[in-house]
Nucleic acid binder design. Structure first.
Length: 563
DNA sequence: GCTAAGACTTGGAATAATCTTG
DNA sequence: CAAGATTATTCCAAGTCTTAGC
């Protein structure tokens, strides 16, 4: 029982990053129900095109009719022109088609960091050799004797050429892409035309695992119709496989939403063709499922944390009971944070670490399913993921309340909004690499600010002179001149202020990715209510795509909306 | 109960489209 | 008006969580 209590206490603080008390539990519950209703209502509205209705979900049935054209297959390999050579040990060598194709995958990536990694090189070379002819295999024995530079140059040039194309040609290519989108990019779902998210099969290439991935560089094979399972409705027009080919299978499963699927050869997982994620509502540590050792990069979530990932400090920087986290999370992004916890939580963590090695699991009796089960006991439908979302939204609302100043101008209010958004992104650990052009664009901005300051100084001088002039002459003309200069000065001050705000925003945003939380975690009604309340145009917060996605919220949220 | 497979969702990097500016 | 910077979109790997099979 002690373990149970221990985990429960730990849950309170560590899983959620916030306190889970009766009050927030009630809020959370209300919010979930509301969201569920909204989402289902929105789906209905979208698909039935009529009024909102109550959801009457028959268990598991996702559609009655589904018709589509099947996936669009990646274009076949085009052999290299004769003048582009591959060299082995300094000698030009003509490769068989299949071998050449794989060589181009590597050649294209030559200026990418991946190709400097030993694991990548070894995996690539192993897989490449498997596809070689017997003769090629006899000759090509070492990657370091392979020279791909001509191949690399060929693709770089080709890219440049495409960019430099005259605009009529570019227009043609664009129209071609649109035709493709028209032909393959839509399906009919229960009588309505819906956009497909990804209608193309993934092209062959070299696997780009993230972080320290043991399989990076392995050959991702070409997907053939024979690999693809089609899912559609029985009475629909069944998609035609490309001439001379057959589907692996055609099935009529209306309990799932995918249109086509295939098994990918690197991890043996299933890939899907699915609908475009339309209006859906999409909490601070991830649950952390178990992963297969050696098959993927070594990353963890909260249930799979190991003793080596935390450090306990009875006292640190004047605070008591500090837990220091340091581990690699999703996409191998580092999570580093020092969190003060309640004494019982601290005590339990100490207990969990006793007699364990650094590589042992911290919570050895906890798995994601027991964790979620526990959460479900607390509240119907609650999972770690839901908590992540809730936490993000409530933080945004709180931060907006704290940071916004009603007397500020619009630029300052937007800065406040971005700061609130940033607080959420930091909470969810949405990091990004500092953009390559960051320093430069910061400098540009600073130059602009300096220039503006100069203008301002000049304008001040002129105003002074105009005032002096008006005092002497007292003419109508000189008076209006003073007004003019005053206006100019005010305008310049406003511009300067806006630039400075922008610079602050940019600096603070250096390593934080805002997009993910904005699009996937935050209840849009909070943002929209904020816009309405403080007179900020919605376009300043959401771009075109985002406004489309959140159209329902824009419609309904008023300034009084409380999350 | 437990593991494995399957179905979605999330999320940063790469790429494409658009805007700015010298 | 091209080059460079910025922003939007696409891509697909990597998570979460449910279900199936023992």
């Amino acid at each position: 029982m002690r373990i149970n209590i221990g985990n429960r206490l730990w849950l309170k603080k560590v899983v959620s990053g916030m306190w889970y008390d009766t009050k927030s539990s009630h809020l959370l519950n209300t919010w979930r129900r509301q969201c569920f209703w909204l989402v289902t209502a929105q789906r209905r509205k979208g698909s039935a095109g009529s009024r909102w209705q109550e959801e009457k979900s028959e268990d598991g049935v996702k559609w009655k009719q589904l018709e589509h054209k099947g996936p669009y297959f990646a274009p076949l390999y085009e052999p290299l022109p004769d003048e582009v050579h591959f060299y082995y040990d300094g000698k030009a060598m003509k490769l068989s088609l299949a071998t050449e194709e794989i060589a181009t995958f590597y050649g294209k990536m030559l200026d990418h960091e991946y190709t400097t990694k030993e694991v990548f090189q070894n995996n690539f070379f192993n897989d490449w050799r498997k596809e070689m002819t017997v003769e090629e295999k006899k000759i090509i024995k070492h990657l370091n004797k392979c020279d791909f530079t001509e191949i690399h140059k060929y693709f770089v040039d080709k890219n440049e050429a495409r960019k430099a194309l005259p605009k009529e040609e570019k227009q043609k290519l664009k129209e071609e892409a649109e035709r493709l989108q028209e032909a393959f990019g839509y399906c009919i779902l229960d009588g309505h035309r819906e956009k497909i998210g990804n209608f193309k099969t993934e092209p062959p290439g070299l696997f780009r695992g993230r972080g320290d991935h043991p399989k990076m560089g392995m050959l991702k094979k070409r997907i053939m119709p024979e690999d693809v399972i089609i899912n559609c409705s029985r009475d629909s027009k069944i998609p035609e496989p490309p001439p001379g080919h057959k589907w692996k299978e055609v099935r009529f499963d209306n309990t799932v939403t995918w249109l086509a699927s295939w098994t990918e050869n690197i991890q043996n997982s299933i890939k899907y063709i699915m609908l475009n994620p339309s209006s859906k509502l999409k909490l601070a540590l991830r649950a952390g499922n178990e992963k297969e050792e050696g098959e993927t990069a070594d990353t963890v979530g909260c249930c799979s944390l190991r003793v080596e990932h935390i450090q306990l400090h009875r006292e640190l920087d004047g605070q008591e009971h500090i837990v220091e986290f340091d581990f690699l999370g999703k996409d191998s992004i580092r999570y580093y944070n020092k969190v003060p916890v309640e004494k019982p939580v601290f005590k339990n963590l100490q207990l969990f670490m006793e007699n364990k090695d650094p590589g042992d699991e911290l919570f050895d009796r906890l798995t994601t399913s027991t964790l979620n089960k526990h959460l479900q006991d607390l509240m119907d439908g609650l999972t770690a993921k839901v908590f992540r979302t809730y936490n993000a939204s409530i933080t945004l609302q709180e931060q907006l309340k704290v940071l916004t100043n009603a007397e500020d101008n619009v630029a300052a209010k937007i800065l406040s909004y971005n700061r609130a958004n940033r607080a959420v992104a930091i909470l969810c650990n949405h990091q990004r690499a500092t953009p390559k052009t960051f320093e430069k664009s910061m400098q540009n901005l600073q130059t602009k600010i300096d220039a503006k300051k100069e203008q301002l100084a000049v304008a001040k001088q002129e105003l002074k002179r105009a005032k002096a002039d008006a005092k002497v002459r007292k003419s109508v003309k000189s008076k209006s001149n003073v007004d003019k200069k005053k206006k100019l000065l005010a305008k310049l001050e406003e511009q300067l202020m806006r630039l400075c705000t922008q610079a602050t925003d940019k600096e603070e945003n250096k390593q934080v990715a805002l997009g993910t939380s904005k699009l996937n975690y935050l209840d849009p009604r909070i943002s929209i209510a904020w816009c309405k309340k403080f007179g900020v145009p919605v376009e300043k917060i959401y771009n075109k795509t985002q406004r489309e996605k959140f159209a329902w919220a824009i419609d309904m949220a008023d300034e009084e909306f409380e999350f």
